[in-house]
Simulated scan of single mutants.
Amino acid sequence: MDEFANRRQGIYVLAAHPNWRESRANRQLFDEARGLAGVQVQDLYGRYPDYDIDVAAEQANVDAARLLVLLHPIQWYSMPALMKLWLDEVLRYGWAYGRSGTALHGKDLWLVASTGGPEASYHPQGYNRYFFDAFLPPYEQTAHLCGMRFLPPLLLHAAHRASEAEVQAHVEVFRERLQSYPDWPELEELDACPITDVPATDRPEPDPGED
Rank of each mutant, 00 (worst) to 15 (best):
L87T: 05
R99L: 11
V55S: 12
R47A: 08
G101P: 01
D88V: 02
L82T: 00
Q75C: 07
G94L: 06
E119G: 00
K84F: 01
V62W: 09
E58R: 13
A37G: 10
L104Q: 01
D31R: 15
L67P: 04
V41Y: 04
R27T: 09
L91D: 00
E32V: 14
D63L: 15
V112Q: 01
A60G: 05
Y77V: 00
R99A: 09
Q75V: 13
L82F: 08
H123W: 07
L104M: 14
L85C: 01
I74A: 10
L87E: 13
F135Y: 15
A56K: 09
W86G: 00
D108C: 10
R34I: 03
Q125K: 14
D133P: 05
L87A: 12
A37N: 10
A56S: 06
Y130W: 03
W86A: 02
L71K: 04
W95Q: 07
L87R: 11
P124N: 01
R34S: 05
E89Y: 01
R129C: 05
D52S: 12
V41D: 05
Y48N: 07
D43S: 10
A57I: 06
G38K: 00
Y77Q: 03
Q125G: 09
K84N: 00
H72E: 01
D108E: 15
P118E: 12
A37Q: 13
L71R: 04
V112L: 14
R66E: 08
G98V: 03
S114T: 15
V55F: 07
P80Q: 08
G126I: 05
L104S: 02
K84Q: 04
Y45Q: 00
R47N: 03
E32I: 14
A120F: 00
V41P: 04
Y51Q: 09
A33F: 04
L104T: 10
L104W: 06
Y48E: 02
D50R: 14
V90L: 03
Q28M: 13
G46K: 02
V39W: 06
D50Q: 12
A57T: 00
P138C: 07
L67V: 14
A33W: 07
L36A: 12
Y93E: 08
H105Q: 15
Q40R: 14
A103I: 08
T102F: 02
Q40L: 03
D133S: 13
F30E: 09
Q42W: 05
T115P: 06
E119N: 02
P124D: 06
P137H: 10
Y45A: 07
D31T: 14
W76N: 11
L85T: 03
A33C: 01
I74S: 00
L68H: 13
Q40N: 04
Y127S: 13
E58H: 04
Q75S: 02
S100I: 05
T115M: 02
D43W: 02
L111H: 09
H123Y: 10
A134I: 02
G46C: 12
F132D: 05
G46I: 02
N26A: 01
V62Q: 11
Y122S: 11
S100K: 07
G46T: 10
K84R: 04
W95G: 08
G126Y: 09
A134F: 15
I74E: 04
P137R: 10
A120S: 13
A120W: 12
L36G: 06
G117L: 12
Q125N: 11
L104P: 04
K107F: 04
G101V: 10
F30S: 07
D133R: 14
